[in-house]
Measured scan of single mutants.
Amino acid sequence: QWKVGDKCSAIWSEDGCIYPATIASIDFKRETCVVVYTGYGNREEQNLSDLLSPICE
């Protein structure tokens, strides 16, 4: 189960590419979260089910 502060990978809606991110907040009722893309600072809402394991850098 994901928690705030977890590192993950998420698909950015603008280009469909996968980027490393950190979970900033979680809404368990809606099963969504807000991620912050590492190195970019962009925030975006994602479905918890769409999150991927962190990418090894």
Rank of each mutant, 00 (worst) to 15 (best):
Y40G: 07
G41S: 06
A21E: 03
Y19T: 01
W2A: 15
A21W: 06
I23L: 00
T32Y: 07
L48M: 02
C8R: 00
P54A: 09
Q46W: 04
P54C: 11
A24Q: 10
P20M: 12
S49C: 08
R43Y: 14
T38E: 14
K3P: 15
P20I: 11
P54F: 09
K3V: 13
N47L: 11
D15F: 10
N47Y: 13
D15Y: 08
D6I: 10
D15P: 01
C8Y: 00
I55Q: 12
S13H: 08
S25G: 03
E45C: 07
G5K: 00
I11A: 06
G41N: 10
D27H: 01
T22E: 10
Q1I: 00
T38V: 10
S9L: 15
P20W: 11
L48W: 07
T32H: 01
V35M: 06
C33L: 04
A10T: 04
V35A: 01
V36Q: 09
V4G: 11
C8V: 15
T22G: 04
W12P: 00
S9W: 15
W2Y: 07
Y40F: 14
E14S: 06
I26K: 00
N42F: 15
E57S: 14
A24G: 06
C17R: 15
Y40R: 15
C33H: 00
K3C: 11
K3W: 13
E14C: 09
K3E: 14
R43D: 08
Q1G: 13
F28C: 05
P20Y: 11
T38F: 08
I23S: 06
A24D: 09
S13W: 10
T38C: 13
R43A: 13
T22N: 04
C33S: 00
K7L: 12
Y37C: 10
F28G: 09
D15A: 05
A10C: 05
A10I: 09
N42W: 15
N42R: 14
E44C: 05
I55T: 09
K7W: 11
I55L: 13
L48A: 04
L48F: 05
C17Y: 03
Y19G: 02
D6T: 00
G5E: 06
I23N: 04
W12C: 12
C17G: 10
E44Y: 06
S53C: 10
K3A: 13
E31H: 09
V4T: 09
S25L: 10
V35Q: 02
W12M: 04
D6W: 10
D6K: 00
Y40T: 15
Y19N: 02
V35L: 06
Q1V: 00
T32S: 06
E44Q: 07
E57Q: 10
I18E: 05
G5H: 02
C56I: 15
V36H: 03
C8K: 00
V36E: 13
I11C: 01
C8A: 01
W12F: 10
R30T: 12
G5A: 04
R30H: 10
E14H: 12
Y19H: 04
G16K: 05
C56Y: 15
G16M: 05
K29V: 14
V4P: 14
R43F: 13
V36G: 01
A21S: 04
G16R: 01
P20L: 12
N42H: 14
G41E: 08
S9M: 15
T22L: 11
E44W: 08
V34T: 06
V35E: 02
S9T: 08
W12G: 01
G5V: 03
K3D: 14
I18R: 12
E57Y: 12
A21I: 11
E45R: 09
T32K: 07
T38L: 11
G5R: 00
I23Y: 00
T38G: 03
K7H: 11
L52A: 03
A24S: 07
R30Y: 11
V35F: 04
V35K: 01
N47G: 01
L52H: 01
K3N: 11
C56V: 14
L51N: 02
N42K: 09
C33A: 15
A21H: 07
V34A: 03
Y40E: 06
C33G: 00
G39D: 10
E31V: 04
A10K: 06
I26H: 01
I11K: 08
C17D: 02
S25V: 10
I26L: 03
I55F: 12
Y37H: 02
S53D: 14
S49I: 11
G5S: 03
E45L: 09
L51E: 02
S53K: 12
Q1L: 00
L52E: 03
G16D: 05
D50Q: 05
R43N: 07
Q1N: 13
E14P: 03
G5W: 03
L52S: 02
G39Y: 14
E45F: 07
G39H: 12
S13A: 09
G5C: 12
K7F: 11
I23V: 04
Y37G: 01
D6E: 03
D27Q: 00
V4F: 01
K3Y: 13
